[in-house]
Amino acid sequence: DATQGTSADCQPCPCPAGATCAVVPKTREVVCTNCPAGTTGKRCELCDDGFFGDPLGQNGPVRACRACKCSDNIDPNAVGNCNRETGECLKCIYNTNGFFCDRCQEGFYGNALASNPADKCKPCSCSGQGTVGHQTTCSQVTGQCQCLPNVAERDCSACQPGFFNLQSGAGCERCNCNPIGSTN
């Protein structure tokens, strides 16, 4: 406030070098108005949308603002892709999730880090008839669904050789064919 007539009327902006500041009339609060590139916040302590870090080191060592690190599993046209401080990814795509979009979502399996989106996370598609408790989840890596007794295949969609009646929903039953009259 330059109108008070004291030597303390004008004070330096509490902002990083080069930034200007302003006083919010209602609250008398000082805010930096021209934070260095990539930073924002009252004191330039935050990263812009799409970046993360701790530019003033308010919660530990100084971490310059860097672009969200989400394993190429975010869309640059989206907003709010990661937490501005921790970098936690918030808008994973291609059926991925996890802090860095580095895992497959529940109900999907594969390699979230594959370079081609089609090779990333595929749906488990577990067979309703052959899977324990009609589960829709599978092993994140192999995609193996949890099969009922004597049920085979990754998606539990077929009986093991020598077994039948997947439709029962309780696993497959032994064929019990007479070895003398059967061809194999």
């Binding site: 108005t33 916040g41 009252k42 935050l46 907003v79």
Partner: peptide, 12 residues
């Protein structure tokens, strides 16, 4: 000029 400063926010 700025109408409002919302320094901690990302306004969309």
């Amino acid at each position: 000029k700025a109408v409002l400063y919302l320094p901690a926010k990302v306004v969309i």
